[in-house]
Simulated scan of single mutants.
Amino acid sequence: MYSFTKRLMDIILSLIAVIMFSPILVIIALLIKFDSKGPIVFKQKRPGINKKLFTIYKFRTMKIETPNVSTEKLGDPSRYITKLGLFLRKSSLDELPQLFNIMFGHMSIVGPRPALYNQDDLIELRDKHGINELKPGLTGYAQVMGRDNITDIEKVRYEEFYKKNMSLWLDIKIIWWTFKSVVKSEGVRVN
């Protein structure tokens, strides 16, 4: 019953969010076009449920000549992030296109954040603990417990806690905690 309710909640909430945020989506798209050369939406292959690759959508926050690696491997990422991109990342508005990933069934609102395809250590750790069996999420327990300020081992511990305690109530709490942290603009993601 939980998985049916979770999928139904994903569809309804993401559809409502797309409708509600559609003016913001259009404004961001226009601002990206004026800010820098390149596509509006950044697309990248990520391992999803059972490590099956899917295309994740984000608003582009980096210049088109940026190497395709996680931000922490860029050395000084500020030279690659666009002016608008810094704001979009800090506010998490760059994640809004993932609402379409949720509607298409590639992602859920709550689940482990999808790893980059080249984050081998994290993917291997997730394999050992069965985390890759879960649908990736727009937000997750590890996100609200430390985002990118925690190690991969800590992330997987939080994700394992989520896997063992998955419930509609826990999902609602994670969504609420995420909302609070986005409003406070806490931290900048690296992937």
Results as ranks from 00 to 15, higher is better:
residue 74 L to P: 01
residue 78 S to T: 13
residue 130 G to F: 01
residue 61 T to A: 03
residue 153 I to M: 09
residue 163 K to Y: 13
residue 190 V to K: 13
residue 140 G to M: 05
residue 180 K to A: 15
residue 96 L to P: 00
residue 128 K to M: 02
residue 152 D to I: 00
residue 40 I to W: 10
residue 94 D to P: 11
residue 42 F to R: 01
residue 105 G to M: 02
residue 127 D to Y: 04
residue 49 I to F: 03
residue 15 L to G: 15
residue 174 I to F: 05
residue 26 V to L: 15
residue 118 N to A: 05
residue 115 A to T: 15
residue 105 G to W: 00
residue 109 I to D: 08
residue 37 K to W: 01
residue 177 W to F: 12
residue 95 E to V: 02
residue 26 V to F: 15
residue 16 I to P: 10
residue 50 N to W: 00
residue 51 K to I: 04
residue 38 G to H: 06
residue 114 P to F: 03
residue 183 V to N: 06
residue 43 K to D: 00
residue 67 P to L: 02
residue 21 F to Q: 01
residue 101 N to E: 06
residue 33 K to R: 11
residue 41 V to E: 02
residue 88 L to P: 01
residue 117 Y to W: 02
residue 27 I to C: 07
residue 150 I to R: 11
residue 135 K to D: 04
residue 137 G to D: 06
residue 166 M to K: 15
residue 29 A to V: 04
residue 134 L to R: 08
residue 64 I to Y: 11
residue 74 L to E: 01
residue 110 V to L: 03
residue 151 T to N: 15
residue 140 G to K: 10
residue 113 R to Q: 00
residue 53 L to T: 00
residue 166 M to L: 15
residue 166 M to T: 06
residue 89 R to M: 00
residue 190 V to T: 09
residue 97 P to L: 02
residue 83 K to G: 13
residue 127 D to S: 01
residue 126 R to Q: 07
residue 107 M to E: 08
residue 107 M to F: 11
residue 124 E to I: 00
residue 7 R to M: 04
residue 108 S to V: 03
residue 45 K to R: 15
residue 20 M to T: 11
residue 34 F to I: 14
residue 116 L to H: 12
residue 116 L to F: 09
residue 80 Y to S: 10
residue 124 E to W: 00
residue 82 T to G: 04
residue 115 A to G: 15
residue 115 A to F: 14
residue 54 F to L: 05
residue 32 I to N: 12
residue 124 E to A: 06
residue 69 V to H: 01
residue 153 I to D: 14
residue 18 V to C: 15
residue 175 I to W: 11
residue 2 Y to C: 15
residue 187 G to N: 01
residue 58 K to W: 10
residue 128 K to Y: 10
residue 78 S to R: 07
residue 188 V to L: 07
residue 80 Y to T: 08
residue 87 F to S: 01
residue 83 K to I: 12
residue 90 K to V: 14
residue 16 I to M: 14
residue 92 S to Q: 04
residue 188 V to F: 07
residue 132 N to G: 03
residue 34 F to D: 12
residue 160 E to K: 15
residue 138 L to S: 10
residue 133 E to T: 15
residue 142 A to G: 06
residue 140 G to L: 05
residue 17 A to G: 14
residue 26 V to P: 02
residue 172 I to Q: 07
residue 15 L to D: 05
residue 22 S to M: 09
residue 28 I to Y: 09
residue 10 D to I: 03
residue 113 R to G: 11
residue 59 F to H: 07
residue 24 I to G: 10
residue 140 G to V: 03
residue 35 D to E: 05
residue 74 L to H: 00
residue 17 A to P: 14
